[in-house]
Write a protein that binds this DNA or RNA. Structure first.
Length: 585
RNA sequence: CGGGAUGUAGCGCAGCUUGGUUAGCGCGCCUCGUUCGGGACGAGGAGGUCGGCGGUUCGAAUCCGCCCAUCCCGACCA
């Protein structure tokens, strides 16, 4: 294909748009690939759409190769299926809802689990039909509370979503592995760096879930990785459990007056001033902090939960939320304290906590709080704390919970060293859905014994528009975009740097010859000064830039590698063969 | 949803404090000429409901009120 910039629907911007923050997003707008159409909505211009289509094509090819079959659902859907699965209400404000002229409720689909499930239910009823994997590439709608970062978090976006259907867990595991392999192949082809991290599979329990994160400081997701290769979403990080400590030498627990010490800081300061240790100063890590929250369950039930953790750590709300799902974490209000007089605000202690204690309040602790660890903690009386309280001797929690914040340098669960905290863009997510939707929508098939069994499903997503953004963010440099060849809008950006007939004619002929040779060419045949053309070529990010200009006097054209900046010269006669070789390899 | 900010030509901005000719600058766009290897220069042009509604005033981009929209931080986010 040969595209002429003189006719291309393109306007590059010399200045950064005011509403773009990320370097890749800024470059996409400046280079005329996308335009903002509204908050969280984007228009793809010709060059952007070319890149988008190449990304989409690669994803399609890899899905087809693994045996998934493409379908296409409406983006606009009736309410009923979402009512049946409970998500009409569960999805909340994030769901775009609308009514037709008769007043019937509809929605713009944020994802299509229900439709896939119902479609299979419609057509299939035998184990012989399974396994099955089907997918679509579809525009999705989510009324995000806060769209941001251009294409990365938009309200309208394109997602490839596929679903696998199997009769049993082994089948699901196999389908999952196939998707996993296909995703690896896809992201490799897209030229995207990625880390596969463990993710929380939510309340369905036990099933596998992994995210493909593209590591970049501009990513919204936080994950950890270890030198040994362990990687996990923060929600899913497992805290290594230390060995129990001997505590024969620990003196009996004793209660001390610690007036006006409702916080860890005030407690530590008081202890150092009035109850100093012999060996070292007290620190927050010596204290056991007990945080009380209310869990609110979908059935309306509410119960308090106390989380115990070392005083130098805070609760990570997202980790806690992931642990207690489907219950929702709510703050423990003043009224709740009134309802639970056994809980003394600021001075809670574990010996009054636990399902078997007088308060009956469930008490879960951080995994670091193992048998033999000794703590300073609340004495359940205002202004008093208990010292040398030993876990396993003086109190026994109801269990452990992964709710403490993760810190850079924490020990990795694989024992390979310190965890590193990094940021990434979630470009793919695979997970074993299990039977949640099949049960809700009654998707069952007959097995070989003629018995009805509920189908088990997997769900697999790739953000297509987000992948374009991730590539842009991770390849952009100070000059502009810098596309991997396989998704670039052209192979060669041919700059006509001059206006005399020989230059123009040679460039035209070269462009035509390259086109014939199967090389995609973007020909800058505009009436503009060379400086403008060079700047635009760098901004647009086509991987190979060819300049036909004053070096033509020696019979050569200049070939530049956009990514490395390397420049070389080839004779006009050799140019086509040389470039064709570069573009194919 | 909490906090902060912004809204003036296609883009980036000034003007608003202290109301008063025809609302201005740079980029981009059109015409002519000169230029032509790193975002050229000169001359002449086109392009505006100053976010909206209401109020104060002889007079509002400017002051006041309400609303809307957008962006940033946070909460949220298969």
């Amino acid at each position: 294909m040969l595209r002429r910039m003189s006719r291309l629907f393109l306007r590059t911007l010399r200045e950064d748009p005011a509403d773009a923050e990320l370097p890749g997003h800024t470059a996409l707008v400046r280079a005329g690939y996308i335009r903002r159409a509204g908050s969280g909505m984007h228009t793809w211009l010709p060059l952007g759409h070319l890149v988008y289509r190449k990304v989409e094509r690669i994803i399609q090819e890899e899905m087809d190769r693994m045996g998934a079959q493409q379908v296409h659902f409406p983006a606009l859907l009736p309410r009923e299926p979402y009512e049946a699965s409970g998500r009409w209400t569960e999805y909340g404000d994030t769901l775009f809802r609308l009514q037709d002229r008769r007043g019937n409720d509809h929605l713009l689909a944020p994802t299509h689990e229900e439709m896939f499930t119902l479609l299979v239910k419609d057509l299939y009823s035998s184990y012989k039909d399974l396994p099955l994997s089907i997918y679509q590439i579809q525009t999705k709608y989510r009324d995000e509370a806060r769209p941001r970062a251009g294409l990365l978090r938009a309200r309208e976006f394109v997602m490839k979503d596929s679903y696998s259907f199997d009769v049993d867990d082994e089948g699901l595991a196999a389908s999952y592995e196939q998707h996993r392999a296909a995703y690896i192949a896809t992201f490799d082809r897209l030229g995207l760096d990625y880390v596969i991290v463990d993710a929380m599979s939510g309340a369905m329990g036990g099933s596998r879930s992994e995210e493909f994160l593209c590591p970049t400081p501009v990513g919204e997701d936080t994950f950890v990785r270890s030198p040994g290769g362990y990687a996990a979403n923060v929600e899913a990080v497992v805290t290594p459990r230390p060995d129990p400590l001997p505590y024969d030498d620990v003196p009996p627990a004793h209660v001390e007056d610690t007036p006006d010490t409702p916080t860890i800081e005030t407690l530590v300061a008081f202890a150092n001033a009035h109850l100093p240790r012999d060996d070292r100063a007290w620190t927050a890590a010596d204290t056991l902090k007990n945080v009380v929250v209310t869990l609110s369950y979908p059935d309306g039930r509410r119960e308090p939960l106390v989380v115990g953790l070392p005083g130098d750590r805070d609760v990570d709300d997202r980790r806690l939320a992931a642990q207690v799902e489907p219950a929702v974490v709510e703050p423990f209000a003043e009224a709740d304290f009134d309802a639970h007089p056994g809980l003394v605000k600021g001075y809670m202690g574990p010996h009054a906590l636990g399902v078997d204690s007088p308060t009956g309040v469930r008490y879960l602790v951080d995994p670091r709080i193992v048998e033999g660890t000794r703590w300073v903690t609340g004495a359940n009386e205002p202004g008093r704390h208990v010292f040398d309280l030993v876990c396993g001797r003086d109190f026994t929690p109801d269990g452990t919970i992964e709710a403490a914040e993760i810190r850079d340098g924490d020990p990795a669960p694989d024992g390979s060293g310190p965890l590193e905290i990094a940021r990434g863009i979630e470009i793919g997510h695979i997970f074993q859905l299990g039977r949640k939707y099949a049960e809700a929508l009654d998707l069952r098939v007959l097995d070989e014994h003629g018995k009805l069994v509920t189908v088990t499903m997997g769900s697999y997503g790739i953000g297509v528009s987000r992948a374009v953004a991730a590539i842009a963010e991770t390849t952009v440099d100070e000059l502009g975009l810098c596309w991997p060849r396989q998704v670039a809008p052209a192979d060669v950006h041919l700059v006509v740097a001059g206006k005399d007939a020989e230059v123009v004619d040679t460039a035209e002929r070269l462009a035509t010859d390259l086109d014939v040779a199967g090389v995609d060419v973007l020909l800058d045949d505009r009436q503009a000064s060379p400086g403008v053309k060079f700047k635009d070529a760098e901004l647009l990010g086509v991987p190979t830039i060819v300049v036909v200009g004053k070096r033509l006097a020696d019979g050569v054209v200049e070939v530049r590698d956009r990514a490395t900046g390397e420049r070389s010269e080839v004779t006009v006669d050799d140019a086509v063969a040389h470039l064709a070789a570069i573009c194919v390899s």
